[in-house]
Design a protein around this nucleic acid. Structure first.
Lengths: 218, 218
DNA sequence: TAGATTGTTAATCGATTAACAATC
DNA sequence: TAGATTGTTAATCGATTAACAATC
């Protein structure tokens, strides 16, 4: 997996940095900056130019000696690597506040992912629309997924109910799970998972604040 | 910063893993498992026992030779390191869908952080309550923060409006920003920031799905 | 051409893992 | 005591940085 131009594996450390490059390149495009050197990009992002050149070279020679990088081209390449143009289709399982917030947020469209529908068990939300997407009964999910070639399931339901959802997801051939439940989901055969633990980020913030305090006290 | 028992710095790599230990230890407590060896915990978490022992030893000898780790004790220690018992007070700036979703989620209470209020500019939400917390007019923020010793500001507003909020935050002595806007906020003097980029996680999911595809095709 | 900046190799640094003595 | 398992040192591995030749 993760082949480069030379058919060697790209490390997870590099992959993890790609979305950040994607964001900064998009920003540059918005500012009509069409050319950038690894040095300038490094300063902008707070990393070393060496790292940027190394990272990009895992996938190919995207720059040009003496010139730097063409932002449009580079943005396109990184988008491609990250699958932005693959037009993945997603459903959201759990139409509570978080599920609805995600459905209405630009997080999907910005990355070329389309949210087709939300699913829930509660009569309170079934039949509603969220930002133009229908909220359907979970019992309709099987047929919906078959008819709509769904690639991604977003789990925004309490983790107690997630197990059933995962079984369904596996059986329907959905390829990726974006997991917002509070429990890690790893090693599901045939399905790739990204666990989002917002709480972890909050705890690191608390750690930093506490550390700030300690330093000030000393 | 980040001192150990020996007054040496703890690496960011270790700190980043602490919240995950916290989660797994809480899980063990819920299952009434009161004792665990580094080996068993390693298997549970999918890491090496060596790493666990090294990580924990950055902060002190939390285990006992021949016995392992007392889960209650270890959970308490890690909670302490992460500032769970510091009773930090938070406000949420931006009472849209995401702000409301966070206010109503257990992500704060599980980590001992209290959400005091939400702030917004829209008359549609000002005056409402979300899970018992008032939604106030942003113009009231200054006084509210002074009266309530707020430690953390959660930014769930469009990033175009975030700059003003950050100025206010700095001037009011708030120590930490939990940033959900789509732009990194770094190097704010006197304030520590955690940037949450959910989109980055979605992109890595897309990358993995695409890679899964490629492998299957070969 | 001369200047700039990449692509890439080599050197350094840090993080992870293995091993084992200490000790409960 | 014997067995188990930590705390900790030493060895390995990988990631980052520095340097520079290639080249636009």
């Amino acid at each position: 997996m993760n082949k480069t131009k030379n058919d060697t594996t790209v490390s997870a450390a590099v992959i993890k940095r790609l979305p950040r490059y994607f964001r900064y390149l998009r920003m540059l495009l918005n500012e009509n900056k069409l050319r950038i050197s690894s040095n300038d990009l490094a300063e902008l992002m707070g990393v070393t130019a060496s790292q940027i050149r190394q990272d990009l070279n895992c996938f190919g020679g995207f720059g040009q000696q003496g010139y730097g990088y063409n932002v449009t081209y580079l943005y396109g390449k990184i988008s491609e690597i990250l699958g932005v143009h693959e037009n993945y289709q997603a459903i959201i399982i759990g139409a509570g506040r978080l599920g609805q917030a995600l459905a209405a947020s630009p997080v999907f469209t910005k990355r070329g992912v389309e949210v087709c529908a939300l699913f829930d068990v509660s009569a309170d939300v079934i039949g509603k629309e969220v930002d133009g997407r229908p909220v359907l009964d979970i019992s309709q999910m099987k047929e919906f997924v078959k008819n709509n070639a769904i690639d991604i399931a977003v789990l925004t339901l309490p983790y107690e109910y997630a197990e059933n959802a995962v079984e369904l997801i596996k059986s329907l051939g959905i390829k990726g799970i974006w997991n917002f439940t509070s429990h890690d989901m790893d090693h599901i055969p045939g399905v790739t998972v990204q666990n989002v633990h917002m709480g972890d980020s909050l705890m690191m913030l608390c750690y930093d604040i506490r550390n700030l305090d300690n330093n000030n006290e000393v």
